[in-house]
């Protein structure tokens, strides 16, 4: 029971990180129907900018942890967003209206570019970060096994919840959200009605990248290190989460992230940690067989 509780806490934390990345996938897929394969690497860039930000904070002597975290968060979001914008502008926008596979190939190319760019400029070795937040609340203790809820886990879950709420409001309540939903339904019609499609798509990428940067910083804080390759697996799993929850749906992305986190952590905790990725992918295959639109996705009606 204690073990179960502890695993549950870990799983929710991991799920929150996956969910944040998954939102980027799901929004982009919703609006232009492509897998932004480089999104995982945007997440990786975000973690690197956060790492550099923390070191700068230490050098400037900003010792108050909440302030440091806030500053680094804003810094990472802002500069990673530029990456998101630039990737869309350079690699995807010229391909809008090209054949179906073109953006995907371009995205794979961009993913290779980003990975190698970071590897060349920052080196291939994993970069450890000094522990920023330490300490934990002991929730419960029995049979000599303590269930701990660390402060970092609390922060991750709270930040994720706040951002999720904010984004849901942004999509449902603001003019920008309305434009996004309009582009999602019918891009041509939206542009006829005066929606600046290019701007809307760009902003979608910017928002997705900013969220990925948050996830990158959380990842860095939670695991204490990052390297140029972390984006690949995290990206695939987050995409799996997006598909699992029903691609195109924001709550779906969050739910999918949570499920992937649960599957991964519990599989590793109770069966074998080597095959945890296999478990996550197998669940994806099973879901797609029995419910191809994901858990919360709307069925796609094909007109002939």
């Amino acid at each position: 029971m204690e073990y179960f509780l502890q695993q549950l806490i870990n799983a929710v934390t991991l799920g929150a990180i996956y969910g944040l990345i998954a939102i980027g996938y799901t929004m982009v897929y919703g609006i232009i129907g492509m897998i932004n394969f480089a999104h995982g690497d945007i997440f990786m860039v975000g973690s690197f900018i956060a790492l550099i930000g923390f070191i700068i904070c230490v050098m400037l002597g900003i010792g108050w942890v909440p302030l440091a975290i806030l500053l680094v968060l804003l810094l990472a979001m802002a500069f990673t967003a530029v990456y998101g914008w630039a990737v869309e502008r350079l690699a995807y926008r010229p391909l809008r209206g090209s054949f179906r596979l073109a953006p995907l190939i371009s995205a794979i190319g961009m993913s290779i570019v980003l990975q190698n760019f970071v590897q060349l400029s920052q080196g291939a070795r994993p970069k450890p970060n000094k522990e920023v937040i330490t300490g934990a609340i002991q929730l419960y203790e029995a049979n000599g096994f303590a269930v701990n809820l660390s402060y970092i886990q609390i922060i991750i879950v709270i930040v994720t919840l706040v951002l999720m709420t904010g984004f849901t409001l942004l999509i449902t309540r603001t003019a920008l959200g309305r434009q996004q939903r309009a582009c999602e339904q019918d891009m041509k019609m939206a542009s006829l009605l005066g929606v600046d499609v290019n701007r809307t798509v760009s902003l979608t990428f910017v928002m997705g990248a900013a969220l990925a940067a948050v996830a990158g910083m959380m990842f860095l804080l939670y695991y204490g290190l990052t390297d140029f390759f972390v984006g690949f697996l995290a990206g695939i799993k987050a995409f799996t989460a997006a598909v699992l929850g029903g691609i195109g749906s924001l709550p779906g992305a969050m739910l999918g992230g949570l499920l992937i986190g649960l599957i991964e952590v519990f599989w590793a905790g109770y069966f074998s940690s080597e095959y945890k990725d296999v478990a996550a992918f197998s669940v994806l295959v099973l879901v797609l067989i029995f419910r191809p639109t994901g858990l919360l996705g709307k069925p796609e009606i094909e007109k002939v």
């Binding site: 350079l90 690699a91 371009s106 190319g109 290779i112 570019v113 990975q115 190698n116 760019f117 060349l120």
Partner: peptide
Amino acid sequence: LAFGLAMVLIMV
């Protein structure tokens, strides 16, 4: 790096 860049440029 050049390989990835080539993939993008050729697609574009």
